[in-house]
Design a protein around this nucleic acid. Structure first.
Lengths: 183, 183
DNA sequence: CCCGTATGGTTGCAAGTAGCAACATCCAAG
DNA sequence: CTTGGATGTTGCTACTTGCAACCATACGGG
């Protein structure tokens, strides 16, 4: 089938993306709570980020996820208390604590990750591989666009602990141009 | 460029989708708070749903968004207190309150909507229209898949106030088959 | 017609989460 | 040495959410 869908106007598409993304956000927490009760959605996310980044600073996490530094501080403290995260003082700057997932953290993360991935896989089981790849690309691109939009008195502009970065590097290749994904 | 991206394995794609969706969820609230401080993300979502559906019951909202009915009850109460929502007793069943957005609610929603959409549009400005449409379709399909996955003692299976439904109806045409979007 | 059960919705309670503000510590200039 | 900025932590407060208990209403069988 060439293009059986009706021609979507730009507005319609934007509208839908907005609605669906919002709905998703709403459910994410509920799902997270069910899939890995131990780790809150935020903790999970932060821990995952640490794993991907091979350690980074609390401030970067806060910036990247638009969280207050106090929130990150507490989440990290919790993760540390669980033995999932380790703080290493930065020799170059005594103020910063470089955060690293511990072996236990790695493991816990992997477990939670697997469970979530299993669910996702079920959910996406009937998707053609190509669609999956494209969907992933879209999400990455969306996230990338996020960082470049000022939005407000935001953090995130300075985030160097960017998941979008690692994402595009690992999956979309070196800066996949928007047009390149089309068609 | 034909297909400059590296071949993504299914796992990689699922992985990315998971990560990005999670990250998005994390930011959604913060963004919502900045874009429309008046309406919480949940309130906004619920109100939007009421608008789309031309009214529905609290239980349906709870089911669709995986929220506890108490939560919905409170959110709705808040919306009502703001004058954004109106409850109409159902003549057929005295237990149910059919919820409808008021004119003020409509307006507030529209305003918030516009602001969000503006942001989104900026963010997606350089996306080819076709990619937008496809991205929207993917999201809708993802949401649809959501409802069919048991997951747990979930609600959502009985939700007849389905946004995915309306979404696919309004944008993807009458049941666009998954395969139809591919390629 | 009455009672038991199921469903819709509200409220009490407790836990978790977030942001703001104040503070301690440390780096970097001047 | 002093001032300004950055990194984190903690106190405090407000909000959100889920669970459980609780009314009100419907539905069905004696």
């Amino acid at each position: 089938m060439p293009t059986p869908r009706p021609a979507h106007s730009r507005d319609e598409s934007v509208e839908t993306i907005q609605r669906e993304l919002t709905a998703f956000a709403r459910r994410a927490r509920a799902t997270a709570a069910r899939v890995h009760p131990e780790l809150s959605l935020v903790s999970f996310t932060l821990l995952a980020h640490l794993q991907e980044q091979q350690g980074c600073r609390a401030t970067d996490l806060a910036a990247h996820y638009m969280l207050d530094k106090s929130t990150v501080s507490r989440q990290v403290a919790a993760l540390e208390k669980l033995g999932y995260v380790e703080r290493r003082p930065d020799p170059d700057d005594q103020r910063v604590h470089v955060l690293h997932p511990t072996a236990a953290g790695h493991q816990a993360l992997e477990a939670a990750h697997t469970r979530r991935r299993t669910l996702l896989k079920e959910r996406l089981a009937d998707w053609p591989e190509e669609d999956l790849a494209r969907f992933a690309d879209y999400l990455v691109r969306y996230t990338e666009a996020w960082g470049t939009t000022p939005l407000r008195g935001q953090a995130g502009a300075s985030g160097m602990c960017s998941s979008a970065q690692s994402a595009s590097a690992s999956i979309a290749g070196p800066s996949a141009a928007p047009a390149s994904v089309s068609r």
